[in-house]
Amino acid sequence: MSKVLSVIIPTYNMEALLPRCLDSLLADEALESLEVIVVNDGSKDGSLGIARSYASRFPSTVTVIDKPNGNYGSTINAALPVAKGSYVKILDADDFNDTKALLQFLSALSGIDADLAVTHFTQLGSGGAKEVFKYNTMGKEPYEYGKVYEADDVLKDGYIRFFLMHAIAYRTDLLRNIGYHQSEGISYTDTELAFLPIFHIASLVFLDINLYQYNLDREGQTMNPVVLARSASQLEKVTDRLLEYYESHIAAVSEVRRAFMKQYIENRLRVMFKLHLLDMPRNSFNAEVFGAMFDKYMEACRRDGLSFKLYPDNKLLRINYITYWQKHRRRWPAALERCNSLLDKVVKWAYVKIYRR
């Protein structure tokens, strides 16, 4: 039986969590149609031994690639050329899949023909907190599950602003045909996987399956605010790659795709500015470093016709960060930042209670 799905698991020093990840995949009913590729990225702990033990137990399903450390993107680049599945999905070693949902996903993939499959995912926080993310807008789910849409018919409607790695699986041949290659030597390159191929997809399908279980409750997790602040330079390098790809491919796509990708890159620049101007601890903020990045990206905005504003997430304080920086070349006063942080928490709590399940 041919493999329906290849799951690539980038692994670096994950001996404590890799077994949970692998166990979530290797149900008896999944083995024939599933391929699991564990890429050991130069781990210094027992991750490689664990991966090889699973490969010996499940030789027709689990493959291990052992390579020197090259960071996240290098693991994808190592696995993609050898993947046998019709579709490919990334699963970080500290995360896991819902096993029942995986079986549903495999069944669904075997009966569809689309470049991109989009599922739900659960974000797991501290103290057992769970939040399910679906591609909806303010509680509305506008797409028929299981129906294959032409990509532009979805991208034109404004409901979807971006895709996240946890929710997507691509047709393997699509990634190979576009020569997909992820940046190496830095973290946060999963954003490239969620952005670059969208220029090329012709079709997509939404599936009512809550597959990926995204673990944020781990010390050192890359999305931890402290780690993010330390990694601002890596995020900037990823943003540079997205912008470079945008500029080299935008002229060749439809007007609908152009508008979607323009919105995406504007949002990415907004995220970068927000990281420095509000999210980053004040004692980590470097005005000179941010000023250079700000000027570089504002020049790109002028060059590419990009335009956006940056207001607080709570949408109650109507002070544009960008205008404030341009006028004062400094961040907001500390008292205003504390007030804004409190409002953000209150508004997010209310939103989750009303719209998320």
Results as ranks from 00 to 15, higher is better:
G128M: 05
H249P: 02
E150V: 13
K262M: 12
D344E: 11
V82M: 06
T61N: 01
I76F: 09
N13H: 06
R57C: 04
A292V: 11
T122Y: 07
K262F: 12
N340E: 10
V7W: 01
V132N: 03
Y355G: 02
G42M: 03
F294Y: 15
P333K: 09
K140V: 08
N13K: 11
A167I: 07
S33W: 04
K348Y: 14
T172R: 06
R318L: 05
A108Y: 12
V271R: 11
T75W: 00
R20G: 05
Y149R: 07
E266N: 07
D279Y: 13
D113K: 14
D23K: 12
H200L: 03
Q234L: 08
V271S: 12
K274W: 15
G128S: 03
E192Q: 15
D208K: 15
A30F: 00
M261E: 10
A334Q: 05
V253A: 01
N13S: 08
V253W: 06
L26P: 01
V39D: 02
E337M: 14
G139K: 01
V253P: 01
V64L: 03
I168F: 01
P19T: 06
A292R: 15
P81Q: 02
V352P: 00
T222I: 15
V227K: 12
G179H: 10
Q326N: 07
A93C: 07
Q104T: 15
H328C: 03
N40K: 02
L102M: 09
Y87M: 02
T222D: 14
M298N: 14
A202F: 08
S86N: 08
D173N: 09
V226Q: 13
Y264H: 13
V39A: 00
A194S: 15
D92Q: 04
V88F: 02
L102I: 01
N286Y: 10
V256F: 13
I322M: 09
R176A: 06
Y351T: 12
T11V: 07
K100H: 11
G46S: 10
I178W: 04
A350T: 06
C339E: 05
H249M: 01
V256P: 04
A229D: 07
Y159C: 10
L18P: 01
K353E: 13
T137D: 12
D313N: 14
L196N: 12
A292F: 10
T191E: 05
A334R: 13
I76M: 06
R282Y: 09
I112R: 09
S284A: 11
L310G: 02
G111W: 10
S231Y: 08
G127K: 03
L155Y: 12
F163E: 04
A169F: 11
R176I: 08
H276Y: 15
L310C: 07
L80Y: 04
K130S: 04
L18H: 00
M223D: 13
S248L: 07
G291I: 10
S60H: 10
Y324N: 01
P281S: 08
N283I: 06
H249I: 01
L109K: 06
F163M: 05
T122G: 09
D304Q: 15
I198W: 07
R330E: 14
E192V: 12
K89E: 04
E144C: 10
E184V: 04
D304V: 05
L278N: 11
V39E: 01
A93R: 01
A51M: 08
F308P: 00
E192T: 13
A16V: 10
S183D: 09
A232W: 05
I90Y: 03
L34V: 04
D113I: 02
T239E: 11
